[in-house]
Design a protein around this nucleic acid. Structure first.
Length: 436
RNA sequence: GCGAGAGUAGCACAGUGGUAGUGCAGUAGCCUUCCAAGCUACCUACGUGGGUUCGAUUCCCAUCUCUCGCUCCA
């Protein structure tokens, strides 16, 4: 399988199996927008749940929040986004490259090929909208280009209500919007996307150490959820590629078919944001240490990951093709936490009413405890292949013998090995294998 | 936004100035006792608008949309 091939196959599987559809499909789509279908949203929800469980529920120093997408426009002035995300650019008429006007020595000559540059045009990476039904300047708002600011503006709220001690963090999963110049590669880069972010507040002197700790923790999270180690790397940013708010940053990159690309950035944002917002809002976003009576701006370590691009990485990493009796078997070997469906109940014969009835009864019973589907619309081999493509962990097959011995066949997705399990032991058997 | 390419069933491809086929997928039935079996039937498409023409899916124009590139960053 070549790399391009792999990408095409995963995209094709996503569409074929209804994981992800082109957005606004019946109108011909909308550039780089994608809608998650039934299994796609299960994977997405599972991924977010796994993240939340690791970063919020399994620790006592991180609190979850969910801030509004629309924020007071002053936020984006203070954060630097209005300045940093608004640029005059012009493109070369010969080589078609795009340049920031501010970086140019000569306004109309291309620094790459010496060609003539087109007239400079404003590029704004933030989406604009209006609050209120009248579109006047007073109601101008931006869709947030990052979720982080929703955390910073709640810093004091959290201090005053939950009274955390340093270090502590706030976690958030939510949508952000950027008018990217070059979106693409399926769900990898889109203008509307979802972020999983932690803003971890530390004493300034601890920042370097905590940054390293977070890089390790986040790296290991992807491995634990199934990404092969050789497909993941850490890449520290060079000084000249750091964002305007960051002092240091390391990306966790995945070896996509289109190259090594960022899944998550872990940055030391210093006290830039808290200072900026303190100055702009007039409120002091400081931490008060009641023992030392110190008042200071904490530094912020920010692990910020992309939900959608992570899903793509997990899907690509899980995609397998095998030969079984001369025929191709496609499977998604997703981690059990991520698999959209955990169990499929299948009757071996659909023309035997008692077999069908037992299978349906088992499915109905298990549904109370696991994500389960029932399918009897094809021969058993085909049913297995369908489930393999969806990443279903276990197929339970009910046959005529099941009516006698009250046992069903449990088939493992990855090994195709079969186990005969008593119907009344199924719940317990599956509980041990599936964590939800 | 700019440049290039593309647009025929869910997918992959045919094809024609007289409104379209094949394979896979899907649905139903028969059959079938464990890894995409077989048979039968069925479902589903020429992106949109305009022009030329007796007649356009086909030719022309426009438009929309997608893909790729212009390094944007989660």
């Amino acid at each position: 399988m070549t790399k391009d091939n792999l990408m095409d196959k995963v995209v094709s599987l996503c569409k074929r199996r209804g994981f992800i559809f082109p957005g606004s499909d019946i109108y011909g789509g909308l550039s780089n927008s994608w809608d998650y279908g039934p299994y796609g949203i299960e994977i997405k929800n599972n991924l977010k749940k796994a993240w939340w469980k690791t970063t919020v529920h399994s620790r006592d120093d991180i609190y979850g929040i969910d801030a509004a997408i629309l924020m007071n426009p002053e936020v984006w002035k203070a954060s630097g986004h209005v300045k940093q995300f608004y640029d005059y650019k012009s493109d070369c008429k010969s080589c078609r490259k795009l340049f920031k006007v501010a970086d140019l020595k000569h306004r109309d000559i291309c620094p790459e090929c010496g060609g003539k540059l087109a007239e400079a045009r404003p590029f704004n990476l933030m989406f604009k909208t209006h609050q209120g039904p009248v579109e006047d300047k007073a109601g101008l708002l931006y869709l947030r280009p990052e979720t982080a600011q929703g955390i910073f503006v709640n810093f004091l709220n959290i201090l005053n209500t939950y009274h955390p001690k340093l270090p502590f963090g706030l976690a958030q999963i939510g949508k952000a919007f950027r008018n990217e110049i070059t979106p693409g590669n399926f769900i990898f880069r889109t203008r509307e996307f979802e972020q999983m972010e932690i803003e971890y507040f530390v004493r300034p002197g601890d920042a370097d150490k905590k940054l390293e700790e977070w890089i390790e923790q986040r790296f290991n999270w992807y491995i634990k959820l199934g990404i092969k180690k050789q497909n993941l790397r850490k890449r520290p940013h060079a000084k000249d590629e750091l964002a305007h708010y960051a002092k240091a940053c390391t990306d966790i990159e995945y070896n996509f078919p289109f190259g090594w690309q960022e899944l998550e950035g872990i940055a030391n944002r210093t006290d830039f944001d808290l200072r900026q917002h303190s100055e702009a809002s007039g409120k002091k976003l400081e931490f008060f240490d009641e023992i030392t009576k110190e008042r200071f701006y904490p530094y912020i370590i920010e692990p910020s990951g992309g939900v959608d691009r992570s899903i793509l990485a997990f899907l690509i990493d899980a995609y397998r093709e095998e030969e079984v009796r001369g025929k191709k078997r496609v499977l998604l070997s997703l981690h059990s936490d991520l698999a959209p469906v955990k169990i499929a109940v299948l009757p071996l014969l659909k023309n035997r009413p008692p077999v069908v009835a037992l299978a349906k009864a088992i499915a109905a019973d298990l549904k109370k405890h696991f994500p389960v589907i029932y399918d009897d619309t094809a021969a058993i081999g085909r049913l297995y292949r369908r489930q393999d493509e969806a990443g279903t962990l276990y197929c339970l097959t009910v046959d005529v013998e099941s009516l006698e011995d009250r046992k069903v066949t449990v088939r493992d997705r990855d090994t195709m090995k079969q186990d005969r399990v008593a119907v009344d032991k199924l719940k317990q058997y599956l509980r041990e294998k599936i964590t939800i």
